[in-house]
């Protein structure tokens, strides 16, 4: 089993978790399908996601206590599980987003120096 591959998945996982958290923070409680649509919409369909992984991500966030889940009825009258961000989820989002921004800034500066 190649080590590099695992590392890439890890990065993706973390990124996806951040995206899901941000979506829930912006949009309020949502179900998995809605989250997938929102990410698709925001990324202008640039990000081709295995949408099943959204649920893996949601389970991870649930386990960390950053979101809660409850069964409800969706807009088109289907039973669906709604996820909502918690207070500690917001704190985590703020911290992660901050880190992400700084990282993005560094990379941007590195790239501009490269020119």
């Amino acid at each position: 089993m190649a080590k590099g591959e695992a590392a890439k998945t890890d990065l993706l996982q973390g990124t996806l978790d951040l995206m899901v958290l941000q979506t829930l923070d912006t949009m309020g409680a949502m179900h998995g399908y809605g989250i997938a649509r929102r990410i698709e919409q925001i990324s202008d369909a640039m990000l081709k996601l295995n949408e099943g992984t959204v649920y893996t991500s949601l389970m991870r966030l649930l386990q960390s206590g950053w979101i809660t889940a409850s069964w409800g009825i969706s807009e088109n009258n289907r039973r669906a599980r709604f996820y909502a961000i918690t207070r500690s989820g917001r704190r985590q989002l703020a911290a992660e987003a901050d880190k992400w921004d700084r990282l993005a800034g560094i990379i941007a500066r590195l790239r501009s120096g490269e020119k």
């Binding site: 295995n50 949408e51 893996t56 389970m59």
Partner: peptide, 16 residues
């Protein structure tokens, strides 16, 4: 688009 559903379920199962 949904990907490998069984794999997702397995992952979730193992996570728990």
């Amino acid at each position: 688009q949904l990907g490998n559903v069984t794999r997702v379920r397995e992952d979730i199962h193992e996570m728990n």
